[in-house]
Design a protein around this nucleic acid. Structure first.
Lengths: 195, 195
DNA sequence: TTAAAAATATGATAATCATCATATTAGCAA
DNA sequence: TTGCTAATATGATGATTATCATATTTTTAA
């Protein structure tokens, strides 16, 4: 594990900035000069780091997935250390008020933030999106302690992502919190029964 | 029910074109001049029909919802006339291969096609998005013959939209069809039990 | 310290695009 | 037909933006 070179550190900083922007504003709203500025740089240096804007989008999506997974892992470890069941803890974290709201800061699950754009992506970026989806499904299956088969894990993943996305779409209305809470409690109940 | 004036017909034609474009390419990819061209007009006349681009996006989202609901109603009526149960017929239509694939033609459910952008919309358009979501939930509850309460209907709606969106994100891989089919069959099974 | 190399900055270009001002055409009443 | 009005077209403008050529700064190795 060698230390990152100056250039590699800059590269990472650009990626981190881009990963936030795409989740907050969407793929199409990412402007190269804007990313560079927010990363504390000027626009010209961009092409020393990425072949073009699309290459940044692809890497940024992967970075967002890794970042989100890492934060999730931490929250999950904490919840489990406090006696929570892995799968129900995951459900509670994923459908938390905090996760509902952090979209405006470009944090949280990139699939919920960008999922409806996935089918429009170029081949390279779509492959990364596909890996993110598969990783989510695998994680859910693993957290269920293999009690869920792959298809059931996909279905639960769909429910979680769909519910978060819809609740965000209703954000600002009374329904948003109501549905989010009801979904969280209902899913926790369902997946506790089968212990 | 008065006949539409020439201008109103043109207005509808622009809307129909825009409703297709936003679902196929996303909100941000809609270009005013392009919509007009595809509607058989030139760009200049646009502002005689809409205050600005945002106003078109708002109306187009509503139009897409109405169009999608109408097509759904027809498929559903046909399935029910052939002896299908309303809710299971809905699940089978929503998670059909056809619905999976029609995104590339700008057809189908606008929530699956655009849902992750909903939280970024301006107030007016977001209100329309919220109504689409609520309409979906109500429809699901109605089709369950009120056996599902509102929260459970929301959860099933989330699952359907999430599953379609994820399957589209995996489109082109073997997983896409596998997950779609498994989800469809599993959900139909679950919601037949409770008859 | 100093020159070569690496990294970043400045400035320019061409394309895209929403919007508007103005012109032209089409429908209709007389 | 002949004007009048509604509808649509043409052309222009200014803003945004990806990309590239070139310059400057920073780092590193001697």
């Amino acid at each position: 594990m060698t230390a990152l070179s100056k250039k590699e550190m800059t590269h990472q900083r650009i990626l981190q900035t881009a990963a936030k922007i795409i989740r907050r504003d969407g793929f199409d709203s990412l402007a190269v000069a804007d990313v560079m500025k927010q990363a504390g740089l000027t626009h010209g240096g961009f092409y020393a780091h990425f072949a073009n804007r699309d290459a940044l989008l692809a890497e940024a999506l992967g970075y967002a997935g890794a970042e989100s997974a890492e934060i999730l892992r931490q929250s999950l470890a904490q919840a489990i250390s406090e006696g929570g069941e892995p799968l129900t803890a995951f459900i509670e974290i994923y459908l938390s008020e905090q996760h509902l709201n952090n979209c405006t800061e470009g944090a949280g699950c990139p699939v919920a933030a960008l999922g409806s754009d996935f089918f429009r992506l170029d081949t390279t970026t779509k492959a990364i999106a596909g890996k993110l989806i598969e990783a989510y499904v695998e994680k859910v299956q693993e957290l269920s302690n293999q009690k869920l088969n792959r298809e059931s894990a996909f279905l639960l993943t769909s429910t979680l992502i769909g519910a978060l996305q819809l609740a965000r779409g209703l954000k600002g209305t009374a329904q948003a919190s109501f549905y989010l809470t009801a979904s969280r409690e209902d899913l926790v109940r369902r997946h506790s029964d089968s212990q």
